[in-house]
């Protein structure tokens, strides 16, 4: 039995390598070889697998700072879906994803198309547009709070030149999420641009030359060559951003504290407040699992949509 597994593995690896297998004893499955992966697996199991399982277990228990209490079944989930603020935070998160992801994908694509050339100017702009991406959320929110702050902020100053009053981006419940979205787009725009750029550079130049010979104009070239060849990247960019923006936390916590009146509170901030301010760990764990499922759906979509097309 063991031998059969070993030999099939050898066939598998040698057929992959495409040449004859080295001496059998070298490629045989040996426990000793696992020593190379053991150090990483130790951390993988203790810091990721175990907490994941524990988190699921917690979500079915009553738990607070005094310890884990009795099994309560789905009570935490029932409380969660009865909590108006949780439902609001789910709605807010979807709204935020809707505000940021299309803007990031379209602006990123526009910039990639505009800057996909071999000039120094283009290189300068590419570097400039990506530079905000390396900053931490703290710096980004500090910058944008001082832009949005009423009376003496940058926006208020610019509006002041025209004797008008700037919209109160962070204190108006209808605008708070939009203010956070603007700061986030400013922060995250670099990555979609770079992903589109590398996709554009993989389109063979011969195709464009052929199109030029056929007297295709720019719009035709864009529609029949560029767009189809970056379709997969477009899906990829959208799904990466969905996963990223679902995890909104720092911007909301630092710019609005989720306010006014929870109007800009995302799921992660809800989890943070419930688990680490109110120490209602069971409820927080249940909310984390809901977020996990939402992100998992997006991650699975990324896997299947982008892998399948790659194989065809």
């Amino acid at each position: 039995m063991v031998e059969a597994v070993v030999s099939s593995r050898e066939e598998f690896s040698s057929s992959l390598a495409g040449h004859k297998a080295p001496p059998a004893n070298v490629n045989a499955a040996q426990w000793r070889n696992a020593l190379f992966v053991a150090p990483y697996l130790f951390f993988f199991v203790t810091m990721l697998v175990f907490p994941l399982v524990w988190g699921i277990w917690l979500s079915f228990h009553k738990a607070d700072t005094f310890g884990v209490g009795k099994f309560v079944g789905l009570a935490n989930y029932a409380r969660l879906f009865g909590d108006r603020i949780f439902l609001l935070s789910v709605g807010n998160t979807f709204y935020f994803v809707l505000l940021t992801v299309p803007a990031l994908a379209l602006l990123g694509l526009f910039l990639a198309l505009a800057l996909n050339r071999q000039t120094r100017t283009a290189a300068f702009f590419r570097a400039a547009y990506f530079s905000s991406s390396v900053l931490s959320v703290t710096i980004v929110t500090l910058i944008w709070r001082i832009v949005f702050v009423p009376d003496f902020g940058f926006l208020a100053t610019v509006y002041g030149w025209f004797d008008t009053k700037a919209p109160a981006f962070l204190s108006d419940p209808n605008l708070a999420m939009i203010g956070i979205a603007i700061a986030t787009i400013w922060w995250c725009l670099g990555l979609p641009m770079m992903l589109f750029l590398s996709a554009l550079q993989q389109v063979p130049a011969e195709i464009y030359e052929a199109a030029a010979l056929d007297n295709a104009n720019r719009w035709q070239t864009f529609r029949s060559i560029t767009l189809p060849s970056i379709k997969r990247t477009f899906i990829l960019v959208v799904l990466i951003q969905v996963v990223l923006q679902f995890q909104l936390f720092g911007q909301a916590r630092l710019m609005t504290q989720g306010g006014p009146n929870n109007a800009s509170k995302p799921i992660v901030l809800y989890i943070y407040d419930v688990a680490f301010k109110r120490w209602d760990l069971g409820l927080g764990a249940a909310a984390s699992e809901i977020l996990f499922i939402l992100i998992l759906i997006a991650a699975m979509a990324q896997y299947f949509l982008t892998r399948n097309r790659g194989e065809n």
Binding site: F44, L58, M300
Partner: peptide, 19 residues
């Protein structure tokens, strides 16, 4: 291990904090 890529930090945060 690859499946671990799909696990967001928030899903393990509370348990990690307890541990």
């Amino acid at each position: 291990v690859l499946l671990g890529l799909a696990v967001p930090e928030q899903a393990v945060l509370i348990a990690r904090h307890q541990i």
